[in-house]
Nucleic acid binder design. Sequence first.
RNA 1: GCCGGGGUGGCGGAACUGGUAUACGCGACGGACUCAAAAUCCGUUGCCCGCAAGGGCUUGUGGGUUCGAAUCCCACCCCCGGCACCA
Length: 815
Amino acid sequence: MKRYDPQSIEPKWQEIWEKAGVFKTPAAPKNKQYVLDMFPYPSGDGLHTGHPRGYTATDVVSHYRRYTGHDVLHPMGWDAFGLPAENAAIKKGVHPAENTAKNVERFREQLKRLGYSYDWDREVNTSDPDYYKWTQWIFTELFKAGLAYRGAGQQWWCPKDKTVLANEQVIDGRCERCGSEVTKKELTQWYFKITEYADELIDSLDELDWPEPIKAMQRNWIGRSEGAEVMFESDTGPITAYTTRPDTLFGATYMVLAPEHGLVGKLTTKDQVAEVNRYVETAKRESDIARTAEDREKTGVFTGSYATNPVNGEKIPVWVADYVLATYGTGAIMAVPAHDVRDHEFAKKFKLEIRPVIGGPAAEGSDEEMVLPHSEEGVMFNSDKYDGLPSDQAREKIVADLEKKNVAKPKRGYKLRDWLISRQRYWGTPIPIIHCDNCGPQPVPEKDLPVELPDVKDYLPTGDGRSPLAKATGFVETTCPKCGGPAERETDTMDTFADSNWYFLRYPNPRQKDGAFDKEALKQWLPVDTYVGGAEHAVLHLLYARFWTKALADRKYLGFREPFKSLRNQGLIMAEDGRKMSKSLGNVVNPDDVIEAFGADTFRLFELFIGPFNQDAAWDTRGIEGCYRFLKRVWVFGQSLLEATDGPDQETDIAEAGLERAVSKATKRITASIEQFRFNTAVSGLMEALNDLQEQTAKTGPRPAYRPYFERYLVLLSPFAPHLAEELWRELDHEESIFTQGWPAIDESAVADDTVTIPVQVNGKVRTTLELPADGLSEETVTKAALADASVKKHLSGKPKKVIYVEGELLNLVG
RNA sequence: GCCGGGGUGGCGGAACUGGUAUACGCGACGGACUCAAAAUCCGUUGCCCGCAAGGGCUUGUGGGUUCGAAUCCCACCCCCGGCACCA
C-alpha cells in the first residue's frame, strides 16, 4: 500500500490544473457567482497564517459553486502601493518598486502552493501603471463632479520621522513606526467628499447581508444624529448652536464656543481679552491627545459677552472651552448642565447655574445634583408653556415654534468627515492634477494618463510637508492643459485606500485598455456575491469602496449602488499562547513550514476546522496533527478500496445501504455548513462521514462495490483537500479531473434511518429511549411502548395526566 | 459612557424554527502490535454518590414563561471588539 505523501501529490496536481486551465473563468457566465477575497498587501514577511483562513473559505465556496452549476469568478491581486511597502523598502535600502515586485512573487508562489483555484490570468496590481492610470481617471471624474476638492486641513505629523502619517498609522496617538507622540500640521490637502453620501451610506446598510458588527461600526462611524440649529442673539450678532436636545432649551444656562470658533474674537470684551487670548493660544499649542485625554479636567474662560436664549429671552454668559470641538456641529453649543454630564462638570467647576427642566415625577423638586442621562426621556417642567409635555414631543414643538420665528431649524449632524487622501509620500498613485497660476488646479486629461510615478533615486520622505516627488523637477514642471502656460504638477500621492476602492471592478476585464472597466463584463459579474476579509476594514476600505461605487453609479458608469452583496469576516489566527503572533514575541507560525510538515491539504483543512469562521482562534499544533491524521485515514481507506477484491456478495447489500446513508447524510450536512459559512462543522461532517464509511465497510471488509460511495465522498472532500481528493479520484480510474463532477445528490429516503430512537420523558426528564421502526410511529403505539417500560413505570405513578408527543422526536408523559 | 459580539466538559468547540446537551477534534486513561519507542489500531472518558443496578447535578448568576429552555423574557456579573468631551 502506498503511503500518503502530500509533498509529491500536491505540486503535481497544481501543475496539471494550471496547464489544463481547470479553474479558468468561463467567458459568458449564465449563473454567475463572484467570490472575492480582500486582496492582500504583499508585505515582505510573506503570507502569514491568517491569510489562508479567508482564502481557503472562498476557495471552498468557489469549488462548491462550480460543482452546483455556477460560473465562478474567483480572482486574486495585490494591494501593492502604500506606506508600509515604502517603509519596508526604506528599511532595506531597496527601491519600493523592486521590493514590492519581489514580495508579490513570493506571495503568489505561496498562494499557489496552497492549491487555490484562482484564475491567475486576472491578477491585478495597484502599483502597475495600467492599473493606476484608471485610479487617476476616477479621481479626475470625481474632481469634475466636485467630489474631490482641495482644502486646508490639519494632518497627523510625526516630529521624529518628519513625515505625515495616515490616520490608520496613528495608534493611540503615537507614530506606528517610531512610537513618538504625533502632532498636527496645517497643510492644504485633497479630500474626497464622502460626507455627501452619508445618508445613503447609512440607510442602505439595511439591504446588505453583512455581519451586524460591521454594519454597526459603519453606522457609528458615520454617526448621524437628529437635532436642530438654534440661533442665540448677542450684541455682536447671532451665535448658532447645534443640539440634539432642543427640549432642554429652558435649561440652557450658558453657551460655549470652541477655541477655534470664528466669533471668539468679536465676542470677547476688553477686560477679558488677555485671558481669552492666553487660553486660545494654549489650546492651539496643545496636542489633540492631551485635549481629549480620558479624565481631563474641564477648562475654559468667560468671553465677557452674553447671548439671549430664544425661548425665554434670558441673557446667558458665553464661554470659550476646549471641550467643545470646532469640527462638529457649528463649533458652538448651548450648555445644559442639568442634563449633560460634560456641561454639568463644567458648570460645577465654574459655579454656573444648573437648572433641571426634564424629569419623572420623582425628579421634580430635586436639587441641582440631578443629571439625567442624555438619552433619557421624561416630562418637561421649568419650561413655561411646554411644562407637562413628554420630552420627545416638546423637542419637535419647540423647534417648530422657533422655526416660525426663524431662529431654529431641524438639522442632522454627522461624525463622518470628508476623506483626506493626500499623502506626502513617494510610493502611491500620483494625484493627476496640474496647478496653473491662471486656471487653478486642472485635472490631467484622460489622453495624458497615467501620470507615471517617476523612477527617482531619492524617495525618502522629506519632512517639509511635500512629497519627495517635489524634488523631481522633470516631473513637476509641465504645462497647463487648459491655457498651455507653464504649470506645476501636484506632487502628493493618493492614500492607498483609493487604489483598493475599485479593484473588484477591474477583475471582470483586467487588461481593458480603453477604460477602467468593461461595462458588459461588469453587467455579467457585478456585484460581488461573496466577499471575505478581516473586520479591521469595517470603516476604511468597506466604507470607501461603497462611497466610490455610489459616486460612479451617479455618473452612470455602474448599474448598481452596492459593491458587496454579502460579506463575511474571518477571525484572527492567534499564536498558540493566545497572544497575537509577532516576531518580537517569537511565536510566529510560518505557513511554509506547515506546508512542508503536513502538506497544503492539512493546512487548509485545519484553518477551517480551528473554530467558527468569524471568531478568533489560537493556533494548535495538536489540532493540525489531528487533521493530518484524518487525511491519512482517508488515504488509507481509499487505498483499501483500490486493493479490494470481490468476495461473496450476500452481505454487501446491508453495507451498501449504510454507505448510502452515510454519504447522503454527509452531503446534506456539508452542503448546509458551506452555505452558512460554518466550515468548522463542514469539516466535522467530513470526519464523521469517514467514521461512518469505515464502520459500514468493516462489516464485510473493503469491496470494489463500495467505490462509488467513496467517490461521492471524495467530491465532498475536494473543496477542502483538493490534492488528496484528485489523487484518489484519478487512482480510481477516472480520466477527467474530479472538478468536472457535479455535487452529490442527496437521497432523502436513505438519510432516514429504518428505526428511530424516541426519548421518553417522565415529567420532562428522560427515563428511557425506545428503538422503534420508523414507520407507524403513532402517538398510541409510542405511548403504549413507553408505558410498558420498567423505568417509566417506576417514575410514573398511575396513568399519565397528560401526554405530549412530538412526531418521531420525543414523548413526554406528565404524571 | 455609547454601540456590537460572547460566556457550554480538562481544552477548541457541536446542538435544525424550544424537543435525548456535550457531535467532531484534541488531551487523558486502559489495551493490541513492538525487544523497546514512535506511528497505527481498539476501548473508556461531563461532574458527583454507588461494588453494581441505579440515582442526583450540569450550558456565567438569579428569577420567569413552558409538558419541556443552552435556545424565549426580565435583572445582574464577567470577557472580547469598535467608538469616545460628536453636544
